[in-house]
Simulated scan of single mutants.
Amino acid sequence: MKQKTFSQIVVLWKTDKKQYVKKSSFSAYSLLLENHLLPHFGRHILIEEAEIQAFVFVKLEQGLSQKTIKDILIVLKMVLKYGAKNKWIENHSFDVQFPTEREKNQLEVLSRSHQKKVMQHIQEHFTFRNLGVFICLSSGMRIGEVCALTWEDIDTDNGIIHIRKTIQRIYVIEEDVRKTELLIDTPKTKNSIREVPMSRDLLRLLKPVKKIVNPSFFVLTNDAKPTEPRTYRSFYKNLMQELGMPDLKFHGLRHSFATRCIESKCDYKTVSVLLGHSNISTTLNLYVHPNMEQKKKAIDQMFRNLR
């Protein structure tokens, strides 16, 4: 068994992995390796569970979220598994503990009245860039999906939006050159390729425009060149400030759409499909939180049955 260091294994693993995953995933893995794993474990020939646990505490201390750290550990596991398969390193499965998170993260959503105000404003001040915010509130699209939307994805005859691509700026490391590039690709998972019906208001907004635009142009720019998520995010931030809205992340528009669906008593499976989640548990964990009224009802019902 010819032992190799972690960083030597990483080089071989990347060459292998590149053949199987999307360019954007590969870029994300490379970034996590470069920024976190290689500086910490690069020279190691053996990686013990205790060291990984210590690494987790260091990262929490640096202010990384548990989700980010878990993503980093997934990459670490993949590399170690690959190294062990090729007998370059001993693979001990590791089980890392995280401190209990005390604060329940509140989902950020627009209140009904704020959502109405934003949608009203966009209907009265139509611009292609404004339209994107309206579309997200009406369909729950992700920012990369709305930036990649072209007019041919919008079917006003049948009132359907086809979501089939996403756009993101990825970080590319080739040899020793580091650069970023804009990538238009299929969405996150196969469930993300989906069709969302348009609301009446959205259809009324889009029908006249659709007749006169170039079908291959991007919706948000009405041009052959798209806007990228970072640029659109700052446009959105300014729009919300201008309207005196709470400081809500762009992704909050998707949360608001989902929350309105659940409030309207839509069945969860449908909401899950509209959002393009790969399984319904994602939807349930994120959006289905019984409120006090529902909790009381459950308790009353239970005791009524006991009588």
Rank of each mutant, 00 (worst) to 15 (best):
R112E: 05
R102S: 04
S65V: 03
V79Q: 04
H125S: 11
I299Q: 06
V209I: 15
I154N: 02
N158L: 05
S138P: 00
V146E: 01
R254H: 11
N305V: 02
Y171I: 08
P226E: 01
Q97T: 07
N105K: 12
K190F: 12
A54H: 15
E145D: 10
A258L: 08
W151R: 06
Y20Q: 12
G276A: 12
F128Q: 07
V209T: 09
L64D: 01
T68E: 09
R204W: 00
M141C: 14
G83I: 02
D157L: 09
I160F: 10
A84W: 03
H125I: 08
N105C: 00
W13M: 07
I52W: 08
K188D: 15
G83N: 02
G83P: 02
I9M: 05
S264N: 15
Q301E: 10
R254Y: 13
Y29L: 09
C266W: 15
C261D: 09
S264M: 15
S278P: 05
I45A: 10
Q301N: 07
K87V: 07
K295A: 10
H162C: 06
I45D: 10
H277K: 14
T150F: 01
T259H: 11
A258V: 06
P229Q: 00
V58R: 14
A84R: 05
K59V: 02
L183G: 12
V133H: 04
K265C: 12
M240Q: 01
K296Y: 10
R142E: 09
N91W: 01
S139F: 05
L137T: 06
T283L: 08
